[in-house]
Design a protein around this nucleic acid. Sequence first.
DNA 1: ATTTAAGTTTACATAAAAGCAACTATAAAG
DNA 2: CTTTATAGTTGCTTTTATGTAAACTTAAAT
Lengths: 122, 122
Amino acid sequence: MNLADNIKVIREKQGLLQKEVALHIGVDKSTYSKIEKGLREVTVAELQKLTKLFNLTADQIMNYNENSIPTEVVIEDKSTIEQMQLIQQLDEEDKSTVFKIIDKMLTTKKFKDFFNKNVAML
Amino acid sequence: MNLADNIKVIREKQGLLQKEVALHIGVDKSTYSKIEKGLREVTVAELQKLTKLFNLTADQIMNYNENSIPTEVVIEDKSTIEQMQLIQQLDEEDKSTVFKIIDKMLTTKKFKDFFNKNVAML
DNA sequence: ATTTAAGTTTACATAAAAGCAACTATAAAG
DNA sequence: CTTTATAGTTGCTTTTATGTAAACTTAAAT
């Protein structure tokens, strides 16, 4: 990760000027320039202010490049927590669809099991 | 938020010593002591190392107090996303229990509906 | 009382940051 | 082409923060 580059890319993508971001996080524009050039570290307090300005989480800002380089995801191998997190990353419609599918798969399986056990009884 | 306090609480909850965390993030134990005392700022690079050691996101570390101050939760009013996030905050056993209950409630409802519609047919 | 380990504080040399002003780059306007 | 304006960068001095060894304080164990 390169926080300086990430911040610069995000700022530009959001159409903000250096001086606007500088004002928001409370530093001189020259200081902010140094931040994007990697000549001055971003403090954690500033990072938090950036999360609000950019409307992103700190982790999204720190891992911005990694997030946006599309890599294949193999969800099956991951832990439940990671699966939940991955599902959450889907947009609302896809997530809803996934949940409906899971519901239906589970429901179907249970009906099958039930009838396999009990049809003979009728 | 008070990052220094958050880190201290998290460290203690995970049963780690200052010198262990210090070693992990690459600072002298005296420097780490200052971090927890608020006498020395945590750098973003260090925060990222802490996310790995603590197995938490940067945002979870920064907002730790807010997360852990016990406030009553009324999950029913919240959006699905928030519900998911809340469920994720549960520990593994509780989460598993919740999911099992939800499964069973849904399954039960479907069986009820099915038999209400079809028992007359037999 | 002694030992041991965790954590804190001090002191001071070293390093980094602040912020202003001067500079460059770019682009639009006359 | 020259002027004007704006965004961003760099240089420089003062101020502030940092690292670390060593001393110090707790506190538990025996």
